[in-house]
Amino acid sequence: MDDKKEPKMEDPRFKIANREAIIGVALVVFNFLWWYGFAYGLGSGPVEEYSYILGLPAWFFYSCVLGLAVMIILVIIIVKGFLKEVSFEDDWGQKK
């Protein structure tokens, strides 16, 4: 995103914003794969062969219950470790 042809200078905050949007897409792709993989990977067999965890079918436990816990932890890690604080006001970067 560093094309120099644009007459206006690219706002440095947008670089951060773009990066965070990509993180959002990556998170949702991961979430989907986890959800889909466990649900249909473990849940497609006959019901008699299901194993159960905490009383719930294993596919459901891994896909939905554990999946939710994993997503919550991931979001916390990303927020604490990867998101940057920026000011939303227009005078960003200029000394007042």
Partner: peptide, 17 residues
Amino acid sequence: VATGYFVLLILGKKFAI
């Protein structure tokens, strides 16, 4: 569940600015 993080990350800071 995706709505919990996706909306804010995608629209995110760019939308706010």
